[in-house]
Amino acid sequence: MVSKTDDKKAAPAAAAATAKPEEKKKVVSTIEEDDEFEDFPSADKEVIGWDAVEAAEKELNAWKDSWEDDDNETDFAVLLAAEKKKVSSAMKM
């Protein structure tokens, strides 16, 4: 996930951290601060443009394909199926 170019950017990022200690503290000290969408430190913006998007697009495969399986073998499905049988046989009696 971390590319080589990161090393070069680590320096300005570190400088940013020292330049703005108040911002860093803020982030960890209170819970509310946690809800804030942070500014992307801009050092990397010029290096990486839209071209890199496609290459990196698949980096995070965030979603499962589908839950619409017809698989009745999960624990709960088996439990349900067992219950159905009981109900059905009870009704026959």
Partner: peptide, 15 residues
Amino acid sequence: LINFAPLTTPARIHN
């Protein structure tokens, strides 16, 4: 979400 990928910063994870 898809376009976070090229942004290599610590803020990315949080965001």
